[in-house]
Design a protein around this nucleic acid. Structure first.
Lengths: 256, 256
DNA sequence: CGTAGTGTTGAATTGAATCAAGTGTCGTGG
DNA sequence: CCACGACACTTGATTCAATTCAACACTACG
């Protein structure tokens, strides 16, 4: 289900913020008029460059909740920009358990795990109705070769991905359960803000189990963590709806 | 201290393997005759391309043990290829503790954490006498723009770094202390093999504390883990010297 | 020779996992 | 339209793996 219907439950935390402005599914038929263009691949490209990028992008049919964009071991062909909705990437461990490696929101690039190995190291699944821009990598390489700005931009995107991964490394190797959750919520908050949505009131599209698999915790610990943060009046939780009521305190949990 | 002197203690685990073939410090004055060229940046480049790459590389004076290559928040200028010796990258957390984000061995590329942000997110320090090839990034970008093979190669290197980081994410979020150690030793083993050194007999250049900071464990747990693996006759440990005596069993620890 | 850094091991403690029970919600099909 | 089953979530009790605290051994080096 999408956030709209969840909000329609009547027991929602608050106003219509959660219902407002779903990221556009069909609106943008090109990068030029996509309102995510200032946080996606096109940053730092001029009009004609964006036009050329546009030409190689394939805008496929939207994915339904639970549908896979690609699966672990699939041959790598493309990277993807999230246009609307959200995704999770995950691996299956040798004993069959799944581990979430990342969540992706509008304007973010995913699928870069296949670039070096030519095969995807993780599976990626839509967490809700979602749409993507598919960017065939061989064409992206060819175009990057013609447009220095695009090459630079893609190097930067990959560099940022590396930084993000290193930060998670640090988080997993030294934070307590509550610190991990605080950090997770803050990350969602800034990313929602980036795509013009409320930074202190949003709907989780993933389950407690997904969050746990991402943060190295069990779903019970995630649930207890939310309860505990709520008891401290730092957040307010109603099932998937989160409101951050004391941003300062939330940040303080990460260490003073 | 270098591995030579440690080996000279007289209580070494075995033969002269640890002493043999230190990765060359001064030998390679160019990529063309560097014996790491088949695992470093030059892979997939032809002779003339390697020549051009060579021209932008700066081969600085070697670093002594404990010296920094760059520090967190330093302006980003270059990426680096390890020529000899080994390095650790680490961050300082808000409460002053350090967390190791990676170890780097000959032929590996480091410093990519600065590409997106234009400033280094971690500090990098030599774990022993070591030498590096500095590759000024603006020049690398310019040259990549001229040489599609180099652009491809660097995309691949960054992609592999992302995959490696995701694997560590999985490791930290689901492995036990002993599994983390087993995985760490296996990683070192394959990387030593790649640079022509023994895969089952090597010297750790990092402290138990470093390993713990990398794997999200305390140094005591690392020490106990080594002792436990030794008791099971899977490895043999004498301070920094490691011999893997039962590779199959070591791999089996990671899950059947 | 003494000191600082590194490593080992033991005992006590603890934070999160596991096990378990129960509630709430949603979608489906009768 | 309601009942049913599947899932998601919460909370409590217990267990356990790793941390913390502590003491001591080894090595390297000024």
């Amino acid at each position: 289900m999408t956030y709209q219907s969840a909000d329609a439950s009547g027991k929602s935390l608050g106003t219509d913020v959660l219902r407002a402005r779903p990221c556009p599914h069909n609106a943008a038929a090109s990068c030029s008029n996509c309102r995510l263009s200032d946080l996606c691949l096109p940053i730092a490209l001029n009009k004609s460059e964006i036009q050329q990028l546009d030409n190689i992008i394939e805008r496929n049919r939207p994915l339904g909740k639970g549908e896979h964009l690609y699966r672990q071991r699939d041959e790598f062909r493309s990277v993807y920009a999230v246009r609307s909705g959200s995704f999770k990437s995950y691996t299956l461990t040798s004993d069959g358990k799944s581990r979430v490696t990342g969540f992706y929101m509008p304007g973010e690039i995913l699928g870069m795990d296949g670039i070096g190995t030519r095969s995807h190291g993780v599976s990626t699944m839509a967490l809700e109705h979602a749409s993507i821009c598919e960017i065939p990598f061989s064409q992206l390489e060819r175009l990057s070769h013609q447009l220095p700005n695009l090459q630079s931009r893609f190097f930067a995107i990959m560099g940022n991905e590396i930084v993000k991964d290193q930060q998670i490394h640090t988080l997993l190797s030294s934070y307590t359960a509550e610190q991990r959750l605080a950090s997770f919520l803050l990350s969602l908050s800034t990313r929602y803000a980036r795509c013009q949505r409320s930074p202190d009131r949003f709907l989780l599209q993933m389950t407690r189990g997904d969050i746990g698999e991402y943060l190295g915790l069990t779903l019970e610990t995630v649930s207890r963590g939310f309860s505990s943060l709520q008891k401290k009046a730092i957040i307010s939780v109603k099932s998937r709806e989160i409101a951050i009521t004391d941003m300062t305190a939330l940040k303080a949990i990460l260490g003073d």
